[in-house]
Nucleic acid binder design. Sequence first.
DNA 1: CAATTTTTGGCAAACGGTTGCAGTTGCCTT
DNA 2: AAGGCAACTGCAACCGTTTGCCAAAAATTG
Lengths: 343, 343
Amino acid sequence: MEPLGDARQDRQATLADVAAASGVATSTASRALSNPTRVNVVTREKVERAAAALNYHANSHARALTSGKTRTIAVLVSDVTNPFYFDIIRGTQQQLKASGYTQLLVDTEESDELEDGMLHKLRGSFDGAILAASRLTDRRLATLASEMPLVAINRQTRGVASVFIDTPSGIEQALGHLVSLGHRDIAYVSGPVTSWPNEGRWRALLRAAEQYGVAVRRVGPFSPKKDAGAAAADVVLNSGVTACIAFNDLLAIGMLMRLRERGVSVPDDLSIVGCDDIFGSDFCNPPLTTLTAPIEQAGRVAVSMLLARLDAQTAGAARQTATLPTHLTIRASTGPAQPERDQ
Amino acid sequence: MEPLGDARQDRQATLADVAAASGVATSTASRALSNPTRVNVVTREKVERAAAALNYHANSHARALTSGKTRTIAVLVSDVTNPFYFDIIRGTQQQLKASGYTQLLVDTEESDELEDGMLHKLRGSFDGAILAASRLTDRRLATLASEMPLVAINRQTRGVASVFIDTPSGIEQALGHLVSLGHRDIAYVSGPVTSWPNEGRWRALLRAAEQYGVAVRRVGPFSPKKDAGAAAADVVLNSGVTACIAFNDLLAIGMLMRLRERGVSVPDDLSIVGCDDIFGSDFCNPPLTTLTAPIEQAGRVAVSMLLARLDAQTAGAARQTATLPTHLTIRASTGPAQPERDQ
DNA sequence: CAATTTTTGGCAAACGGTTGCAGTTGCCTT
DNA sequence: AAGGCAACTGCAACCGTTTGCCAAAAATTG
């Protein structure tokens, strides 16, 4: 029962505790821990030792309150359900942790309102945000980008930094592949019209089709989910094409399942090309020919770009845009067109 | 150029701004917004209107600093790469958002140190945590649970709340299924020995095997990844069993791919049962017979339990443990044992 | 050795809320 | 009409850091 008791509760140690333990002022303790050059080395070591002994961890809220820095990055995806985003998340998570940041994961449920709302509600909880598949209008997006550090993935809008997976260029390759297999009438299985990459892929296909002198048509739109693949498969079958390119693998895999159910052989009766090369594209039945996208890398690059512009030193030199190439991975869902096929 | 300028910068509006705009003290404004019954309804409306007009959003850090509540829940997974966790994440995300919480996603990379470290470093950034697949020792876990609100998934330890997916019971069903198909010699393809469910599954299988009077052996351990399936497939093939149960679907799918490569027919030459029924189990080749686990629901339930014990009102009544049943989903990776099979 | 510059460390004021306590009001009793 | 009692609202302290500013100490210079 000492008169001036140690008062060392089991509650988290605060900076004041550390300062007291090392016999300096809190300001000095603060500097010793976060701005090492600002204090004498012996003082610093004293403080560091005390901090370690007390198992001190700075309260991130208190720190955020004054410094304005949270060391947290928000990652917005339109649907956590979609394996495409898993790879994005994996990439961002990895790079973020390597830089000592933490990740705030937000699902926007394909809603532009929710996206906008979350970004505002959470503003102050993060230093910057990565928008994977923004559903925002160009205008809104540009405004937002001027309000907070932002990097968009697969979305090119003037004034907002972005990393772009160049699937459109790949589309040309994919079409070339189909044409060389004898296909002349090809469908594009569309995703949501509000999806920026969806439109880009369609335009690229249109352009390439002209070049190759073959016919393409667009069916859909379909929700980019496995379940929607059933409807897509039926529509494509009815259209009488011999091959199709799907907005993404999820849709393509859904089609595969439905076609199997209907006894339609892939690739004998219909060739299918997917986009992205997500988890599962290699072991579905048949394995999917697809445009392999460096998804995880896109996540990493997005983080690097964002972090670069957060850092005052490098902010000026930070690049505005990065383009990542894709390539066609040929597996078993594409094959020669049946010559005597008729409706 | 009015003398007392509006001073309304474009920086985020603060509570003081709102208070000034509605002509009350900040304390009143605070109460009006967060403790509505404490102020007169007309005052409250006035404040609310001002807040809306100024697009006021409370600074979460400032709030966290005084109230100690962050309205953030940490979700720790051992590997964001694993589709099993996708479903967990989906479930937690969903339930968390429904309750107005945000999710802090942390990847512990299968490391107990990282898990422990993160939990401490981030303590103060979240109100509670959900541990999906903790690698911690019982002792450590119990200590942690006494320091912060915690709910573990698939991990039963005295003193820590948990939601348990009852795969062990399902194992019995799975074995019954295999036995009824004529299999008498069955392998368990083990996951990491530090994984709690892995051991549970093996014990359950051992118990069931005794009941059924058939032989089981354990091979492995293997990393619970698709790539490890190749090695697993080879080992299982060498062991001469006619059927196996894999620790999880990821491993099983990896085996499927390797067996196809080696020209071994599933289920004719080898029957395979997976666990969990993750994304992909239904469209791999052949579709996997597996123990379907309500993974997403587990995530939701974990959140409910955690939130219940966070709320002072319901904390006492919050349940300590929840058990979720699994069931066997028979697809095409299991079939009759080949009668005249010999090494 | 005095004058000047550079380190180093402390004080105290933020940051933006929450909350215990106390002071005002207005209304009801008697 | 005075006293009593709620119901409201405001004051001010506090949460745990960071940081501008200043003073003391140490190092450098002439």
